[in-house]
Amino acid sequence: MTAPHAASLDLTLAGRPSARALAGIALAAWPEHEKFLLRSFGQRSPAVLDASETVSAAILKLIAGEEARFGEDYRWTCDRLREEEIFFHREGRYRLSTFAEAHAEVYSNDVYMGRYMRGLLLTQALWFNHAATTEMFLARVLGAMEGPFDYLEVGPGHGLMTAFAAASPLCRSLEAWDVSATSLEETRAALKKLGAAKPVALVRTDILRAEPAQRRFDLVVISEVLEHLEAPGEALRFLRSALSERGRIFVNVPINSPSPDHLALFSSREDVVALVEGAGYRIDRIELYATQGRPVETALAQKISVSAAVVGRPE
């Protein structure tokens, strides 16, 4: 890393030591990434920088003792994503379209999955759109809950959002569902490292095959999951049965975001609105955040990845 850029990153992240440390871990493995990180952090508001610090501190707990490996796998994952980007911009579609293809190429390959999951974890703080979505979740989803709530997350992954929810004084109970027993074990280990403030019931469930839910929740979260499914609308419709009458659902889904295992392509804000409304929800709020903090309309026109975060309620 050259001195001027290092100084700029130090300045941009002054007072946010965890975010600075995480950026340093990525740069140690990938010095040429500094221009991207400078822009990514430089575009963030003070509120998003605060959220970045919160999520970075959590990530540092998860990767403690393996920082270099995570940095290398972040770079490796970005290389894989670049290959998918090239295909997407050439062909106008995601490379894979069925779960069987994704299973054959990605999910059944433990080495690939391990690197991919470690790489994706760092994106939660290093990428503008992911950090901005986390800021929305903390401030305008968890922060907007007006009374005690029961929380359900589908596809909890590294456990970050579940752990943030557990820290809410209003959170009464937590449950997390995943189709994969292996993923649930990884979530269990992550929640332990994060020191989740409350117990979390981890339940193996396939929301595309499950019977209507027996229990109702006040806040249902499905973040960066629907794009991995062949039938995202069906999954959202099923979750309607898990939502209490006055409950809220938080849906985070990427637009124009090619990845090795992304199947469902959403090309516009309208696609996301149709997905959520078509599944039986009324949208209270929708926020869009483009990669690198680019203007959303420009990003949509140029087919650059945009995170769409939606708060809905039962219609």
Binding site: F36, C78, H89
Partner: peptide, 8 residues
């Protein structure tokens, strides 16, 4: 000209 615009 960054890694994203490079691909485009």
């Amino acid at each position: 000209w960054d890694s994203l615009s490079h691909i485009r």
